[in-house]
Amino acid sequence: MKDPNDVILRTVTKVAVVIILTFAVNLFVSGHHNPGGGFIGGLAFVAAIVLLFLVYGIEKVRKNFPVDFKALAGAGVLISVFTGARGMLIGEPFLTQAFGYVHLPLFGRTEMATAVLFDVGVALAVIGTSLTIIMSIGDDR
């Protein structure tokens, strides 16, 4: 049987994935003051990738996005542990967080917290774990 002619689905996916990825980044960076954070931001990112998997096929997406997701999950956990261990290095309890204000060229006065790094670790762990689960179920091998 021939490949189905799903040009409408493909075209709309190209636009929708951009919106979902933007929303995922928005959820991630708004985690400190608004609803959001690393977990839900990572899951929204995974939703965009799964939409690409559904429409374009796993092999094609994997070829253009060659990341080892198991290693990504491990890297996320390592980042989270090291941001916790930073507090121990300066004589504070484990997982002590700090924040400060820096002047960035484009954003002006910006609040930077080590909790963001912890959240990066959480997001990478969530992305790696869920994509590993989905790909190992979806693959025929």
Partner: peptide, 27 residues
Amino acid sequence: IKLFLGIFFVFLTSPVSSHVICRSAYR
């Protein structure tokens, strides 16, 4: 901006989902 994007997103994706459901029903 989230509601604005939500309006655009629903307007974009809801007819396509209906199209895909109808198409798979026909097939």
